[in-house]
């Protein structure tokens, strides 16, 4: 009997869920149509590939942020962490070049993942062991990581070794059967993240910790450990994003990753993940990241708005997208 009930319940839900789950994709589709009508160049494969490729950083970081936010946390430090990780990565690659040659890129990539994971672990442990609000902790580390990159670069820029430039460039600009590498990398991260979140015990515990901490604890979930792990996942995602980011401009500067934390959180929330936790939509987060990037692209391609008002229109579109989301949810 009980099994029958359980199988019945999701069926009723699946009939309602698609609308709320589809909302970010519908919003994305509307913006795409809008872009196509405003400028014929919008749909050119070059332009679309550019936009998708450049949204990969925010998308990859947003996958990690989905875990954190779903478990009831928040991370404001991702933008600064990204800059710090790229800085350390570039320094270690440059140091490894004389010994390893082009293999220094792999060495640097390994360093990026480890440093990212450690930064995440640092955030996570202070939050869970120190029992301090994630907002405050990550606001603190946001300043710390930002200061570190400014210190490492003396306020200027930190370029990668010239001999690595040519070998590393294809990681951002190259493609595999027409699909740019950063996009492939993003897909791998999404699929892996979705598997972890929707198909494993860990994933269920993440959302359980976010929807009701006490209930989760009483049912034997080690909430602190789960939350700390989500911060480590976020750190690794930042590391992966850094690996795709460095070959693009070949340098880390004090403005690298500036305000990305807000874009990431916006992408996650547009995507349907609740800011208060308990609900995770990985594909939605990715759609959110794409929406942000496409809006900016459409603004430049169309001549509709004065350059002074671009940010206002972007803000308005985000709010409208969220309102549409709310109404489809209410149905």
């Amino acid at each position: 009997m009980s099994t029958a009930n359980i199988t019945e319940a999701p069926e009723i839900r699946t009939r309602r869920i698609p609308w709320s789950e589809m909302a970010p994709f519908i919003a994305l589709a509307i913006i795409l149509v809008l872009g196509a009508t405003l400028n014929s160049n919008f749909l050119s494969s070059n332009n679309l590939l550019n936009v998708i490729t450049r949204s990969s950083f925010i998308a990859i970081i947003a996958v990690g942020a989905t875990f954190i936010i779903a478990s009831g946390g928040l991370d404001l430090s991702v933008g600064s962490m990204m800059a710090f990780v790229t800085g350390i990565m570039i320094l270690s690659m440059n140091a490894l070049v004389p010994v390893l040659g082009n293999w220094a890129i792999l060495g640097g990539a390994g360093v990026a993942l480890v440093v990212g994971a450690l930064c995440g672990l640092f955030n996570g442990l202070i939050i869970t062991v120190g029992r301090i609000e994630p907002f405050i902790v990550t606001l603190g580390t946001m300043g710390i990581f930002r200061a570190f990159i400014i210190f490492l670069s003396d306020g200027g820029s930190l370029p990668i070794d010239r001999s690595l430039r040519a070998a590393y460039r294809p990681v951002y600009f190259g493609d595999f059967m027409g699909v740019p590498y950063p996009v492939l990398m993003t897909l791998v991260v999404i699929v892996f993240g979705a598997f972890l979140l929707y198909r494993t015990k860990f994933g269920r515990r993440v959302t359980a910790s976010g929807s009701n901490e006490d209930v989760a604890r009483f049912s034997g979930v080690h909430v602190g450990r789960i939350r700390t792990t989500t911060y480590v996942i976020q750190g690794v995602c930042v590391g992966i994003a850094a690996i795709c980011y460095v070959p693009r401009l070949g340098a880390a500067t004090p403005t690298t990753g500036q305000l990305w934390e807000l874009q990431v959180i916006t992408a996650v929330v547009i995507g349907g993940t609740l800011l208060r936790g308990g609900k995770a939509r990985i594909w939605g987060s990715v759609a959110g990241a794409l929406i942000l990037e496409v809006i900016a692209n459409v603004m430049v391609l169309s001549d509709l708005v004065s350059e002074y008002l671009v940010a206002a229109v972007q803000g308005a579109i985000i709010i409208i997208a969220m309102l549409a989301h709310r109404f489809t949810n209410a149905r």
């Binding site: 400014i150 003396d154 306020g155 200027g156 820029s157 004090p254 403005t255």
Partner: peptide, 10 residues
């Protein structure tokens, strides 16, 4: 101003 971008770094 503090070194927040290239020029102020200089």
């Amino acid at each position: 101003p503090a070194a927040t971008h290239g020029w102020t770094g200089g």
